[in-house]
Lab assay of single mutants.
Amino acid sequence: MASQGTKRSYEQMETDGERQNATEIRASVGKMIGGIGRFYIQMCTELKLSDYEGRLIQNSLTIERMVLSAFDERRNKYLEEHPSAGKDPKKTGGPIYRRVNGKWMRELILYDKEEIRRIWRQANNGDDATAGLTHMMIWHSNLNDATYQRTRALVRTGMDPRMCSLMQGSTLPRRSGAAGAAVKGVGTMVMELVRMIKRGINDRNFWRGENGRKTRIAYERMCNILKGKFQTAAQKAMMDQVRESRNPGNAEFEDLTFLARSALILRGSVAHKSCLPACVYGPAVASGYDFEREGYSLVGIDPFRLLQNSQVYSLIRPNENPAHKSQLVWMACHSAAFEDLRVLSFIKGTKVLPRGKLSTRGVQIASNENMETMESSTLELRSRYWAIRTRSGGNTNQQRASAGQISIQPTFSVQRNLPFDRTTIMAAFNGNTEGRTSDMRTEIIRMMESARPEDVSFQGRGVFELSDEKAASPIVPSFDMSNEGSYFFGDNAEEYDN
């Protein structure tokens, strides 16, 4: 783990906690998980779902989305002020799938948001429990990260689609708070800032007046979040320049895209947490497990152990491969979309394939898809080993990566060399080191050039047997250095459309 220093740990961010010791953190995270579980059980009762239907990941996603929508204050306010045809701002819903006479049927349900809020609060001892809501947002974000390569979004903001390893959390809503900021990748933060800068260039009043003052505060806050992700002084200094700019424009845009590229080699610290679907927490609570009393951590053995003992089902389209669908969801559960496939294969105990080789589309089923041909199958979400999630980018030494994705962002704290394609990355730096950030740029390029592919990161860190909950005997895996390590390699994943 990167030293926490003055930073709060993510469990504290996750639970809005002030400084807590490890036991208190485990208890408050457990409380959050228990609340999600209780809410899910109650919703299944309301909807009269069978046990099997309640364990269907598509039903879980609909129920999670309903509660997130019920608590989305800004959108609710907007919907009330701008009524649109056929949208009731006070209601929320989605597809629920039921097994009827041996076939899967889709039923569109509609609930009062007020009623959903009441059920959620009741499951969370009367609190709004925003930490639990954020947790579900991060699960949705991790699922998107594993399912889609955001080529269009990258290109629109002047970045290269091969930089997708920097895009963790790119679909997280803005209201996801400190826990959300911690899991956002460098590219995601750059993209958010670039969008602001572009608006400022096109709209003279963007930075002016009372609204402009708020915009400015948001801009500086985002700059500080991004600065905190960088691990070298030169990158941090460049972020200070971007933040202090009187009138952010093209120079800042250039600096930010430069920094994003540099992060492929001088990786930023991005938190990883295993956020599971509500249909995993519900049955665990129903079986009598007391998360608050037992304590829970999002970055240790607990999620692995929970998945070892969970039964989750998914709808499967006619030509999809259930094992591939399982891999997709497994990666999402562990926030591992940008991790090295060699490491993932070792931990999972079966070969993890790149996205383009998977015969599976996303987990969600569109409303126009034919239910007649839908089957369902068990998702295999178990693992051979477990490993500690990392909050750091690993040290800054790398190795060759593949054509589709030119770097990785480690999820697990496991000893290995970190793949990246130096030639491709360095070719993108057209040696432009003039301007006010020239000395920093020169320094950053120097550090990137001296990074050695064969150097090892996370020295001495290994994986653990599932029986080793105290992480007492690390097993340090050895990897084939020459092997392909990137998930979005030469990829044809669908595009994420909101």
Rank of each mutant, 00 (worst) to 15 (best):
M1D: 13
R19Q: 06
Q20E: 11
E24K: 04
G34C: 14
M43S: 04
L47W: 06
G54V: 10
I57A: 01
R65L: 04
S69G: 09
S69Q: 07
F71S: 14
E80W: 00
D88P: 02
T92R: 01
G94H: 12
Y97T: 00
V100P: 15
N101G: 15
E107R: 07
W120H: 06
R121M: 11
G126T: 14
T130L: 13
A131G: 15
G132S: 14
H135M: 11
Y148C: 13
R150W: 11
A153Q: 03
P161Q: 02
S170V: 07
G177Q: 10
K184P: 02
V190M: 13
M191F: 04
R199W: 06
R208V: 00
G209T: 02
R213Y: 09
T215G: 11
Y219A: 06
R221K: 15
C223G: 08
I225C: 13
L226S: 07
Q235M: 15
K236P: 01
K236I: 12
D240S: 07
G249V: 11
E252S: 05
F253E: 04
D255K: 07
F258S: 09
S262I: 12
G268L: 00
L276W: 01
P283V: 10
G288F: 04
G288M: 08
N309C: 01
S314G: 15
I316E: 12
A323V: 08
A323D: 02
A323I: 06
H324C: 12
S326I: 08
M331R: 10
R342N: 04
F346I: 13
P354N: 07
P354I: 01
T360S: 14
E372F: 05
L381E: 05
Q398I: 15
Q398N: 05
A401R: 08
F412Y: 12
T433F: 14
E434N: 08
G435M: 15
T437Y: 00
T437E: 02
S438W: 09
E454R: 07
F458K: 01
G460D: 01
V463H: 06
S467D: 09
K470Y: 03
S473E: 12
I475A: 03
P477C: 04
D480E: 14
S482Y: 11
D491R: 03
A493L: 13
N498L: 08
